[in-house]
């Protein structure tokens, strides 16, 4: 549904763009696109939407070329930008009507339904809205015409936790409807919650694409041990060893049976072995890239 081949945007020497990004986002999936600020997430999104032109490589959305057929693409893409900038002097309702007039059908009823769910006041001026409320306008705009593709760039920033949960419910419905969702974010817990696959971008390069389940099923485990005679600091599988108060915290990257055999020899007071969070896995990939 969204496909890029060696998509590259070069901004010049002093600014980082994106380099050889290869994406293949399948129909009906929610694809998480993660990386810290400045890694190239927004550049990728803006290139897909033809706000900027690729320096080389190509991209297709629904088999339409992202440069040549951008108008056709936009008939099928709903977009929530990371920072929302709309016409400040317009009343929200008028603005929403104006926006939906770009499409052929009438979406008035759906618009009111979404606004109600997100608790958006339609009678206010766009310029008077807070950042979070502007974000709600963007979400209504993206969802109202039920597009085949949804592109979100940091959609949850500015939304309070209640509205965030409404938003995730809406996303769930969109997925059931069959929409393909490109979800760019640096809030990893959001990505972990809803995405099927995830791509990690670093310094403009896509360094990893994996199923979220597989990525969470990495062999690495977070281990916390409370023991008086603990001594694994020499073990090659133990990384990030820290002593906090009486307990040792580390990530174990080897065979779990070996770990248990080793631990058995210690006087244990307490132990916990948990899955690492996406944050930790993410940091792991980032650090690994740095070392290599």
């Amino acid at each position: 549904m969204i496909e890029t081949k060696e998509l590259t945007k070069y901004y010049g020497k002093n600014a980082r763009g994106i380099i050889d990004v290869n994406l293949d986002i399948r129909e009906g999936e929610i694809f998480g696109f993660i990386g810290p600020n400045g890694a190239g997430k927004s550049t990728t999104v803006r290139t897909l939407l033809n706000l900027i032109f690729p320096s080389s490589g190509q991209g297709k959305i629904l088999d339409y070329d992202i440069v040549k057929d951008t108008v056709e693409i936009k008939k099928n893409v709903g977009y929530v930008p990371s920072e929302v900038h709309y016409y400040n002097d317009m009343v929200v309702e008028d603005f929403l009507k104006y926006s939906t007039d770009f499409y052929t059908s009438d979406y008035l009823e759906k618009m009111h339904e979404l606004a109600k769910k997100l608790e958006l006041d339609l009678s206010r001026k766009v310029g008077d809205l807070s950042f979070g409320n502007k974000k709600k306008v963007a979400i209504v705009l993206a969802l109202v015409f039920q597009p085949k593709i949804l592109i979100f760039d940091e959609p949850t920033s500015g939304l309070d936790p209640l509205i965030q949960s409404v938003f995730f419910d809406l996303l769930e419905k969109e997925k059931q409807r069959g929409a393909t969702i490109f979800f760019s974010s640096h809030v990893l817990s959001d990505v972990q919650k809803i995405c099927d696959r995830v791509g990690i971008i670093k310094e403009g390069k896509l360094i990893k694409v994996e199923n979220i389940e597989d990525i969470m099923k990495t062999k690495a485990k977070n281990v916390r041990i409370q023991s008086s005679d603990f001594n694994l600091s020499e073990d090659e599988h133990v990384v990030n060893l820290k002593k906090i108060k009486n307990s040792y915290h580390f990530t174990y990257k080897g065979n779990i049976q070996d770990l248990l055999n080793k631990i058995r020899t210690y006087q244990l007071e307490d132990i916990s072995i948990t899955e690492p969070s996406l944050e930790e896995i993410f940091m792991h990939y980032y650090n690994k890239e740095d070392k290599s």
Partner: peptide
């Protein structure tokens, strides 16, 4: 200047 071009170009208009 107002960055509304991002909105405009996300609509089906060339």
């Amino acid at each position: 200047d107002d960055q509304t071009i991002e909105f405009l170009l996300s609509k089906p208009i060339s």
